[in-house]
Write a protein that binds this DNA or RNA. Structure first.
Lengths: 140, 140
DNA sequence: CCTTGACCTAGAGCGCACTCCAGCATTTAC
DNA sequence: GTAAATGCTGGAGTGCGCTCTAGGTCAAGG
């Protein structure tokens, strides 16, 4: 499988695939006689996992660290587990934060709907209302 | 309230406060005789809301658009509502995505624990196991 | 007075994660 | 045999969201 096909199938651009290789996220593939990268099917699973890690907000440096540990073999399992646990905690916290944001958005959308239904009769700033409800300032 | 105090109370750096002002996220404050910014208490609520929008992943350009609509008064309420609805959908989708990621992380952490408990007896790549479970590739 | 500290401006610089470019080689289809 | 498609490299460029710097002003305390 050449890079174009891998790009199509993995959803990463050709440039990104080469970039990921350069920074050590993807192992150097074999080359054909013409010097072109030849990928094995199994790389797709690894890339799918990398995409999941990126989706969690992990930076490419951390991902490269994880990839390097993986290359080193099973004796690094505990370090990789630790990284995933750290990431789990971060993701968990982010979900909570986004849930808060979602509540606030829904609350303000309701206020706007009310305001539009009432024909713009109230012109007091919505942010003030939100504050009085104590929906903001929960943290920060 | 001068910028230093606002920085402390809002959790944004002084530089960020001036930057937000420059790009139109924060209304231009009045100045004292010496030209120094003087803020009203109410700005803190607005900044708290801006921080929430940022936490949802909204870019500063969109935030500036929202801020500009707000400056224009109540007749822009429907446009602002639309923006918040769009953002709600994005946040909702992001929560779902992160929940998926959380499941995958937990699954892999379990595998690592198992592997470490079994004394590294299996050296097959974990990514392959994950793939066979169909936890990856749900989208992408 | 004079120093200290908080503030000011315009603009440069930074870290991140790509993305694009120029210039070239190879392969494939006609 | 030639043109189009696909690939290669090294390095520059991009957009984002700040963050920092240089060189200055201003107000309060000793």
């Amino acid at each position: 499988m050449y890079i174009g096909e891998l790009s199509t199938q993995s959803g990463l651009s050709i440039d990104t695939l080469r970039y990921y290789e350069k920074i050590g996220l993807i192992p150097d593939p074999t080359r054909d006689q013409g010097g072109r990268r030849v990928y094995q099917e199994s790389i797709k699973d690894w890339i799918a996992f990398l995409k999941k890690l990126r989706a969690t907000g992990m930076g490419v440096k951390d991902m490269a660290r994880y990839a390097a540990l993986r290359e080193m073999g099973p004796e690094t399992a505990n370090q990789r587990r630790k990284m995933l646990e750290d990431r789990r905690d971060i993701v968990s916290a982010k979900i909570d934060e986004l849930s808060d944001c979602l509540n606030l958005l829904n609350y303000k959308i309701d206020l706007y709907e009310e305001m539009e239904r009432d024909g713009l009769k109230t012109s007091s700033p919505l942010e003030a209302k939100v504050q009085t409800k104590g929906l903001l300032k929960k943290e920060n």
